[in-house]
């Protein structure tokens, strides 16, 4: 299985690893049984994602896609973050092996899950804005 240099870079030097205390939105996706869990923390000011951090249990691609997803949404508006697709994550990593594409879907869903939590905390129903969060199949 071939990982691109970019995937290996984001795996060995992941950006934004860690937690945010008193995060405005926290999302978690995946399960340990399948071998991948991503937890994402967001700091949001005036609809702008000012900080994003993650913790991931998973393979090289799971770590790299989490890292890349946080990079892609940091400093962006919520609207832009909601437009983040797994394809964009894959492209930014110069591709992923076919069996690892699901990791990029997890990263996309982790962002949405954290935004969903943000709206819930604001007392706003997230469903019309964020849509349903796709949980991975077991």
């Amino acid at each position: 299985m071939m990982y691109s240099e970019k995937v290996l870079d984001h795996f060995s030097n992941p950006r934004n690893v860690g937690e945010i205390e008193n995060a405005d939105g926290v999302g978690e996706i995946g399960n340990a049984k399948c071998g991948d869990i991503m937890k994402m923390y967001l700091k949001i000011d005036n609809n702008i994602i000012t900080d994003a951090k993650f913790k991931t249990f998973g393979c090289g691609a799971a770590v790299a896609t989490s890292s890349m997803a946080t990079e892609l949404i940091k400093g962006k508006s919520i609207d832009d973050a909601l437009k983040l697709t797994n394809d964009a994550v894959v492209e930014a990593l110069d591709g992923l092996p076919a069996v690892k594409i699901h990791c990029s879907v997890l990263a996309e869903q982790a962002v949405r899950s954290a935004l969903s939590d943000y709206y819930t905390k604001q007392g706003i129903d997230p469903l019309p804005i964020v849509g349903e969060i796709k949980m991975p199949e077991e």
């Binding site: 795996f11 060995s12 071998g35 249990f57 998973g58 393979c59 090289g60 799971a62 770590v63």
Partner: peptide, 24 residues
């Protein structure tokens, strides 16, 4: 608490060739 493929990649970065029963 950790996943096997990540472990193998990290070991590889340190020059150690190993194997895992991980799904990945």
């Amino acid at each position: 608490g950790i996943e096997g493929e990540s472990l193998l990649l990290m070991l590889d970065l340190n020059g150690i060739c190993a194997s895992s029963g991980s799904a990945c």
